[in-house]
Design a protein around this nucleic acid. Structure first.
Length: 896
RNA sequence: GGGCAAGUAGCUCAACUGGUUAGAGCAAUUGACUUACAUUCAAUAGGCUGAGGGUUCAAGUCCUUCCUUGCCCACCA
């Protein structure tokens, strides 16, 4: 049977995804005999499709949760999706637009039906895509922020805060998106630096129309709603004019000149038009000076009937028209270039209009206090640390949170109004009616608030609402508080900060202990990946082409502060998975212990039918260190050393480092050295056992990072585990660690690594002794033959593997330097032409170090002040260097 | 304007609380069919650690000033 030597990830993935699902492997129960470990997924939008950010975020979580599961924790990873109010509504509205309809055409109920249908059809896309990554979520528990139970939690939260007086309704200037026709929170309005214009407009004085005050504005269309002009009281230029009346051009409205400290004399002309309905600062001034508030815009940002003849024009058309009209009147003094930042809707990128409207707000100061302290006291740790400063900073001058949205998709605000405008906050219309009846003494008609709540008002409850809150059930008791939250920095304020507030407010306890903030995935040039830039790499495409393991491994190993990715980077992971596969093939092909009966198509089968014998005795870890040769002792010690480092790295959230350690060990030590060294000795049962033992434990260690290949290979081994996902993390076996041997072997490896030339005799037969010289050089010239240095190292490894000295270990290092036996005949005398130049260079380099060390050691200050160990170390270093130089000199003189 | 981070090989990152000769991987260059793997193996070269000043026996690491880049917050009439 022809077997491709290449690992085929697709088959493996499908197989194990099915297995995990069918056996409900990742389901977590309230098991009181075990410690819980809980994380909640940052719920992706139902509209979402998997992008690299998700891939990174979820891989990190999966590593964490798989590691904990293997370490004996009852590990719960709670999955789910977010209804993402505006985003989802937009998607369906676009769909409608194709049919030539608007949501108003359908009406609220019909429109919501469409949304639910859409959600049913497409809402699980992102979930199945996350699954494909290998995410070990408890899929049975998948939650949605608009599930019935979850909606109860949202209402409960609203009512709770309202009772405490932390929710209020008010008329404010908010960020309004004219396209989405809804309010946005401050965080949802993204400010972008734009080069615009600053228009200088002349407002004539009523008493003396030839005189005028010049005001500067970037949004001239708002002048239609001006109700004053303000100057700084200390600004000498205008002292005389304060209190005078101006005539607002185009509208012929009389407005006063007022003084206010808010006005900066240095900016523009020092005089500001005041439009209380269209600017937050102007609104404040308006309140201070009791100015009329004239709203000149409709919700879609066209001019309304307050705008006179401009009624019906779009805000930007109106701007042009107004400027033209003013110019015709000679009232446009000048236009300057001006850089300012303009808010944009984070969903549709429309320019946000500051707009006056009635909204619901949450008072944030009281909630922020415990949340801020939690981080300052270290009760909640944010990693990397410096983000906690950013967090604290933000918490200090937090603004109230506008939570009402004028859309239909979301949690409808649980407030009902009677005809007089009294409002009743309740869980249901019935309850509200009861309240109203109590107030009025008779049944009254009520109408529910039309608005819905901000999406984040539901997702800030995520860590406990997913577990059943407000019900106090066992899940909530057992799994809350959660342990770690993994997220991108973008939603630190949107979500993380608010979850912390909600945790303390509603649960009286922190929602999680650690917050991990990871970088952004960028392209090779450092630009953010985005569809519009066309630089996005589709994770699904990578999974298809390279495999999920490759995607995961490559993403993590590349993650520093930010992650720079290009398609070629995924080869790292693919190659590594392939390497593991092939190393396992080698081991399986040669080991009769511990490998399950193999079918001819699977891993480890061999063309020549090498595996004749199948495991008769099941493999057990009954390794007896006394029977092991030097390389075996070394690889076991190396494994445990690596495993400890990897464990620590995972615990400390240094995942990329863990992967580097793993790669270094498995590829650099196990494959490149151990497997090479044992190739010719694979009929030795002790060597087989060791090879399998280390492979098996390595698979465990690598599993959190690359779950699919490891599962597949592990399943071919004789173990008692149902699957690797449920296996235990390797435990350290002190009796198997021989530090001495390990060091010795390391020394041998170091020696071989420096072998550059070998003196080999003509027609060497197997087991014949040859001289090995340690001479750094690239190529060896020998008469007509050339031997590549690569081949020399290989030869040395092979030689080492059959060297009989090896099994007796102790003196092997020294023997090796002198003599090894070569396993295969070589055609050719390879006589060594030594490059004296190189030698001299090396000597010179070392001499330089010696000089440096000597001068330091003769420095009195150093000797008297430096700690003892440092001095000893340096002395040792000096003597070895001197020795080396002398040896080199010897060799050099022998050569000439 | 306020705050935070980072500048180390061509690129991405290491270097534990200051302590041997600043390390990897990728890319580049050279070479190799070697009974698991060319998705492989082996080797070479590549550095005044952003700049200046200071502290110290000793500075990539600590302090200070400056320069560059990225991020966050606020303001912008």
């Amino acid at each position: 049977m022809e077997l491709s030597s290449k690992y085929n990830p697709k088959e493996t993935q499908d197989k194990w995804l099915k297995f995990w699902k069918d056996n409900n492997v990742f389901h977590a129960k309230t098991d009181l005999t075990k410690k819980p470990f809980t994380i909640v997924i940052p719920p992706p939008n139902v509209t979402g499709i998997l992008h690299m950010g998700h891939a990174l975020n979820n891989t990190l979580q999966d590593i964490m949760v798989r590691y904990k599961r293997m370490n004996g924790f009852e590990a719960l990873w709670m999955p789910g999706t977010d209804h993402a109010g505006i985003a989802t509504q937009n998607v369906v509205e676009k769909q409608l637009a194709k049919e030539g309809k608007t949501r108003q055409d359908l009406g609220r109920d019909e429109f919501l039906k469409r949304l639910w249908t859409w959600k049913q059809e497409y809402g699980d896309t992102i979930i199945s895509q996350l699954e494909k990554l290998g995410s070990s979520c408890d899929w049975e528990r998948t939650r949605f922020t608009m599930d019935d139970e979850y909606s109860e939690a949202v209402k409960e939260a609203f009512i709770h805060l309202h009772k405490k007086g932390l929710i209020y309704r008010g008329e404010r200037i908010i960020n309004w998106c004219p396209r989405c026709q809804t309010a946005l929170s401050d965080e949802e309005a993204e400010h972008k630096e734009k080069s615009g214009k600053l228009y200088h407009l002349k407002y004539p004085l009523k008493d003396d129309p030839d005189q005028h005050v010049v005001v500067a504005t970037t949004r001239p269309e708002t002048m239609l709603g001006d109700t004053a002009v303000a100057v700084n009281p200390k600004d000498g230029r205008y002292t005389k004019l304060i209190g005078k009346t101006l005539v607002l051009p185009l509208m012929d409205r009389e407005i006063k000149i007022i003084k206010d400290d808010l006005v900066a004399a240095e900016f523009g002309t020092g005089a500001v038009k005041v439009t209380p309905a269209h600017d937050p600062n102007d609104f404040m001034m308006g309140q201070r000076h009791h100015l009329p508030v004239i709203n000149v815009m409709n919700p879609d940002a066209t001019i309304n009937e307050q705008g006179g003849k401009y009624k019906g024009l779009d805000r930007f058309t109106a701007r042009k028209q107004i400027l033209a009209d003013l110019e015709a009147l000679g009232l446009l003094e000048k236009i300057e270039d001006h850089k300012n930042s303009v808010g944009h809707c984070y969903r549709c990128d429309t320019v946000v209009e500051p707009y006056l409207s009635k909204q619901w707000f949450v008072s944030m100061k009281p909630l922020a206090k415990p949340a801020s302290q939690a981080v300052q006291k270290g009760e909640i740790r944010i990693h990397p640390m410096h983000w906690s400063k950013v967090y604290t900073n933000w918490m200090q001058d937090i603004h109230d949170w506008c939570i009402s949205r004028q859309i239909w998709w979301g949690h409808r605000i649980p407030v009902w109004y009677d005809k007089e405008g009294n409002h009743f906050v309740a869980k249901s219309e019935q309850e509200a009616k009861a309240q109203a009846q109590a107030k009025h003494g008779k049944p009254v008609e009520l109408k529910q608030d039309e608005d819905v709540l901000d999406t984040w008002f539901s997702s800030w409850l995520w860590p406990f609402a997913t577990l059943g809150w407000p019900k106090q059930n066992n899940d909530l008791k057992y799994f809350y508080p959660t342990n770690t939250l993994m997220t991108a920095s973008e939603i630190l304020f949107f979500w993380v900060a608010r979850m912390i507030m909600a945790g303390y407010e509603f649960m009286g306890e922190k929602p999680f202990s650690d917050v991990l903030i990871h970088g952004t995935v960028r392209d090779a040039k450092g630009r953010k990946m985005s569809k519009s830039l066309g630089n996005a790499i589709d994770p699904l495409e990578i999974i298809d082409e390279y495999g999920a393991d490759a995607l995961r491994f490559s993403l993590i190993i590349n993650s520093g502060q930010d992650i720079f990715i290009s398609k070629e980077k995924f080869e790292i992971g693919r190659n590594f998975a392939n390497k593991i596969w092939n190393a396992s093939r080698l081991v399986f092909m040669n080991c009769e212990y511990g490998v399950k009966r193999l079918d001819p198509h699977s891993l480890g089968s061999h063309e020549g039918g090498v595996i004749a014998s199948v495991a008769k005795q099941s493999f057990s870890d009954d390794l007896d260190i006394n029977n092991l040769d030097l390389p075996s002792r070394w690889i076991i010690a190396r494994f445990y050393e690596t495993m400890e480092k990897v464990s620590r790295a995972i615990e400390e959230f240094r995942y990329s480092e863990a992967e580097i350690l793993i790669q270094d060990f498995f590829w650099g030590s196990y494959c490149d050295w151990y497997l090479e060294l044992i190739k010719t000795k694979l009929n030795d049962p002790n060597i087989q056992k060791t090879a399998l033992f280390v492979l098996k434990n390595s698979l465990k260690m690598m599993h959190p990072f690359i779950p699919f290949v490891t599962e597949e290979i592990y399943s071919k081994m004789n173990t008692k585990d149902q699957c690797l996902s449920l296996a235990a993390w390797p435990e350290k076996e002190g009796t198997l660690i021989d530090q001495e041997a390990s060091k010795q072997m390391q020394a041998i490896i170091d020696v071989i690594s420096t072998i550059r030339k070998i003196r080999i005799q003509w027609d060497i037969k197997p087991n014949q002794e040859v001289m090995v010289e340690i001479i750094p050089d690239n190529e060896v010239q020998a008469g007509l033959f050339k031997i590549n240095s690569a081949y020399i190292t290989h030869l040395a490894k092979v030689a080492l593997s059959i060297s009989s000295e090896f099994s007796t270990s102790k003196d092997a290092v020294f023997d090796l330097v002198g003599t090894v036996k070569i396993c295969m005949p070589l055609k050719g005398i390879i006589d060594l032409e030594v490059e004296k130049k190189r030698k001299r260079e090396e000597i010179a380099q070392k001499q330089k170090s010696i000089d440096g060390l000597q001068s330091r050691l003769s420095n009195e200050a150093f000797v008297s002040k430096a700690p003892e160990e440092i001095i000893t170390k340096e002395k040792e270093r000096l003597s070895t260097l001197t020795k080396e130089v002398n040896e080199l000199k010897n060799v050099l003189s022998n050569l000439s």
